[in-house]
Simulated scan of single mutants.
Amino acid sequence: MPDTGTAGRHPAQQGAAGDGRTRQLVARLLLEQGPITAAAVAEELGLSPAAVRRHLDVLVVEGEAWTRESSRRGRRGRGRPAKQFLLTEQGRARFGHAYDDLAASALRFLAEQSGQEAVRSFAERRMAALVAHHREALDSGRNPGERAEVLADALTREGYAASTRSVGAGEQLCQHHCPVAHVAADFPQLCEAETEAFAEVLGTHVQRLATIANGDAACTTHIPRPGARDRSETDPTPAGSVPTDQGETDEIPDGRESV
């Protein structure tokens, strides 16, 4: 039987394969935790900063990642802010945008034949099916915060790389990947149905702050803590901000300062 491992490979081939696996790990970390610095990537993966920067440079040159300066808020000392790395849409494609063109064509045909309301009905049915698959686990949460954690786990299993954290007067649900982002850019009904489904399963009003379909780094949803004042009626929170307990806001430029 032929050897399908690495033993028979030329050293250069083995090195290239190893580089490819490491670069995939670096790209996944940018997907799940971006924006993130090279030092943070190195620490997370247990690699040298020099090795990580080499992989990040390749991702940037190939158009799979881009950089920006980190926020000055909370930064100590002098000198330039640390550079942060995020995936581009091309970089996200590493993790699957299968059948985007086919799905978009199908929805365009549905809209032409039956109208935009038919697209919305499809979007709602799609989310209902996803929720139904995880309904038992979602119903086990005793409050919106607990259900948000269960929802993040469910979304991750569905390919959304989701996570939560406490922010200001509630929780923040972040989806670092969206399998239908390219289609949702043309059909916002998909994002609208998703937001409504989140409100239903969490049992509370939620506020969508950012979406990958709109060019943000993550789909970010604010979930108010029980008993917190609902600012959406009396003091609307600007898009890209999250209410805090002190009545201030934690700025989220372009939706990218998320989990």
Rank of each mutant, 00 (worst) to 15 (best):
residue 179 P to G: 07
residue 158 E to S: 13
residue 169 A to Q: 12
residue 111 A to T: 10
residue 164 T to H: 01
residue 166 S to T: 11
residue 90 Q to K: 08
residue 194 E to H: 15
residue 144 P to C: 13
residue 153 D to R: 03
residue 115 G to Y: 06
residue 116 Q to R: 14
residue 96 G to R: 02
residue 104 A to E: 04
residue 80 R to M: 12
residue 119 V to A: 07
residue 178 C to Q: 01
residue 84 Q to A: 15
residue 125 R to Q: 05
residue 170 G to T: 15
residue 189 Q to R: 07
residue 186 D to I: 07
residue 124 E to I: 12
residue 194 E to V: 05
residue 105 S to H: 13
residue 105 S to N: 07
residue 141 G to Y: 10
residue 111 A to N: 08
residue 86 L to Q: 12
residue 188 P to S: 04
residue 174 C to D: 10
residue 96 G to F: 02
residue 89 E to K: 05
residue 137 A to R: 10
residue 205 H to Q: 12
residue 93 A to K: 05
residue 171 E to D: 11
residue 80 R to Q: 12
residue 203 G to M: 09
residue 89 E to N: 11
residue 128 A to E: 12
residue 120 R to W: 15
residue 152 A to I: 13
residue 154 A to Y: 00
residue 140 S to P: 02
residue 193 A to H: 07
residue 144 P to T: 08
residue 91 G to D: 05
residue 127 M to H: 02
residue 89 E to F: 02
residue 101 D to F: 10
residue 195 T to Y: 13
residue 94 R to F: 13
residue 128 A to Q: 13
residue 115 G to Q: 09
residue 204 T to F: 12
residue 92 R to F: 04
residue 162 A to N: 10
residue 95 F to Q: 12
residue 177 H to T: 06
residue 84 Q to R: 15
residue 141 G to W: 09
residue 178 C to N: 03
residue 207 Q to P: 03
residue 155 L to R: 03
residue 202 L to P: 01
residue 147 R to T: 06
residue 102 L to A: 12
residue 204 T to G: 09
residue 199 A to V: 13
residue 151 L to T: 00
residue 176 H to M: 00
residue 207 Q to C: 05
residue 157 R to T: 04
residue 111 A to E: 11
residue 119 V to R: 07
residue 99 Y to L: 12
residue 112 E to A: 12
residue 151 L to F: 09
residue 88 T to K: 10
residue 141 G to L: 06
residue 101 D to R: 02
residue 130 L to W: 01
residue 120 R to I: 09
residue 147 R to P: 02
residue 205 H to K: 15
residue 111 A to C: 00
residue 148 A to I: 13
residue 131 V to K: 05
residue 173 L to Y: 02
residue 135 R to D: 14
residue 134 H to G: 02
